[in-house]
């Protein structure tokens, strides 16, 4: 067990320089709700921890002139729930973000941390993906922006290169007639890791017909799944029973879960369909309001 260095740079450039110059395992501290657990349990043994919360860009949430949002990677879910704008425009995104753990955890847990922890069961990720969010990554070669779904690669692994970290996210403006939702199933009512999670974003026209949709599933594969067949099942419909049944079947067909202490293959598969049906209804209700 080595001693760990700690730095809290005030700018992105300083952080990149520290990351690029580090030898050995280096970890980014945002909300710390996964990092500190892993550190205490000796699951990781980093040589350097870089706190990015002194960088203003990571700690702000801005609604831009075009209706889109820029969200700091270390902005906490509890902070987001206190904002009238984003909770109205993207309630599903905020729900996924603010369902992470307890009130105490929500006061710290961030989108950047939740995404980079790269758990297939991460609550915030399915809703981020269906909302079309992208991640702004800083690194030694400058900045780049990639879709959120391209960040996690497999459980615990991301596509970020050496010296790179996520500074912020872009969330598009809410489209006219748009609605989103995130639902998860947990054995209790709080505090659990999702057995299955489902994110839905859709757009309805004035007649109530779905004109576009995205459906994602968490905890049923090595990374969050985007289920195009599920979206297809409801696009062009008014979410009649037949469309919902097809949506359910598409989600069940796409789910490739495992048996573990949190759920069985059979159960997770079935729940993927149930949650998709329920989440679509909520998203549609929101789209209509």
């Amino acid at each position: 067990m080595q001693s760990v260095q700690f730095e809290a740079p005030g700018t992105v450039d300083e952080a990149v320089a520290l990351l690029a110059g580090a030898t050995g395992d280096t970890r980014i501290l945002a909300g710390g709700t996964d990092l500190l657990v892993q550190l205490r349990a000796h699951m990781i043994n980093p040589g350097l921890i870089i706190d990015i919360k002194k960088i203003d860009e990571t700690r702000s949430l801005t609604k831009n002139a075009d209706g889109s949002y820029t969200i700091g990677a270390a902005y906490a879910g509890a902070e987001a729930t206190e904002r009238d704008d984003i909770t109205k425009d993207w309630p599903g995104v905020v729900e996924g973000w603010d369902l992470i753990g307890s009130t105490q955890i929500q006061g710290r847990a961030s989108l950047g941390g939740n995404l980079c922890n790269a758990s297939p069961a991460a609550d915030s990720v399915p809703a981020m993906i269906v909302a079309g969010m992208t991640a702004n990554i800083a690194g030694p070669k400058g900045r780049r922006t990639i879709p959120v779904q391209d960040v996690p690669v497999s459980p615990g692994k991301t596509s970020l290169g050496k010296g790179e970290f996520i500074v912020s996210f872009n969330l598009p403006g809410r489209p006219k007639g748009g609605g989103d939702a995130y639902l998860r199933l947990i054995p209790r009512t709080e505090m659990d890791i999702a057995v299955v999670g489902c994110g839905v974003a859709l757009v309805l026209d004035d007649s109530g017909t779905v004109t576009s949709a995205k459906v994602s599933l968490g905890a049923v594969s090595a990374k969050v799944l985007v289920v195009d067949a599920a979206a297809k099942a409801i696009i062009g419909t008014k979410l009649d029973d037949d469309a919902l049944a097809k949506l359910d079947a598409a989600c069940q067909a796409a789910a490739k879960p495992i048996n573990d202490k949190r759920g069985t293959i059979e159960y997770r598969t079935k729940i993927a369909g149930v949650l998709a049906r329920r989440a679509v209804k909520i998203a549609a209700e929101r789209a209509g309001s």
Partner: peptide, 16 residues
């Protein structure tokens, strides 16, 4: 033991 913590050894919380 696969669940040696309060995360996966699920005792009732207030909202349950």
């Amino acid at each position: 033991l696969d669940n040696p913590g309060f995360l996966d050894y699920r005792i009732p919380v207030a909202s349950d």
